[in-house]
Amino acid sequence: MTRRKLTQRIAAHVALLPFLIFALFPFYHMALTSLKQNRELYDRNAIPLLITKAPTLEHYTKLLWETAFLTWTKNSLLVTVLSTFVSLVIGTIAAYALSRLKFFAVETLGTAIFVTYLVPTSLLFLPLAQVVNWLGLGDSKWALVVTYPTFLVPFCTWLLMGYFRTVPKEVEECAMVDGATRIQALWRIVLPIAVPGLVCAALFAFTFSWNEFIYALTFTSSSDQITASVGVTSELIRGDIYYWGSLMAGAVLASVPIVVLYVFFLDYYVSGLTAGAIK
């Protein structure tokens, strides 16, 4: 490496540093706050950037044993896993039909899916709350299992249409010439080739439904029905007294499942984002 290139590379790292601090500092500070003793946390003369006294897990134990945090997390998991699975199945077959088959109004349907994919959740939450009540799902986590697919299915369909288009038609036709039916060809030939797309769609669907907030906030309110993000943001804040330590502990713990997935599947997240995953 020439001297000039080396300086250039070091300069690029230096220029990246403020952005890295900007991106990561909030997480660092959240984790730090959740580990501080109250004495240090509310000491205005202490340095907020470090832990100077002994770190403590008291905020975590308080969160786990004195609040319904575990129930909220269980609700989140149930809602997320079910809605992801349902959306993936519905999205896969719809994407296959829209990208591979010729039938009545296929173009229009494709466009319609794309348009619903852009509809923000905050546009429809008020009337949707009424529909949820009519379905008898008011203040129930099952309302979320039913409504999350409204944004997950268009997303999965759109993403998978792109993947299915990259599978050459000839591969499938070969299988059908050999006597396989269309559904067998889809199941045995097309889906195995599209596995990276399916993983990507599943990851994003999981992330979107785990992170969803406005529907969860609107459709559920009882402590045994709400999800983790709603529980932490509404139940841990009572009046004007904030338990900052437990609040930050809740925010950290409720982010753990997503962080774990993220660390293992970073490349899928990157490729999914560039494929047009945005919500």
Binding site: A23, M248, Y269, V270
Partner: peptide, 19 residues
């Protein structure tokens, strides 16, 4: 670096906003 810079997008917004 890319992984670190992407992190704010992945974490639940309601929770990171609490931070």
């Amino acid at each position: 670096i890319r992984g670190a810079l992407l992190l704010p997008w992945v974490i639940p917004t309601a929770l990171s906003t609490l931070g």
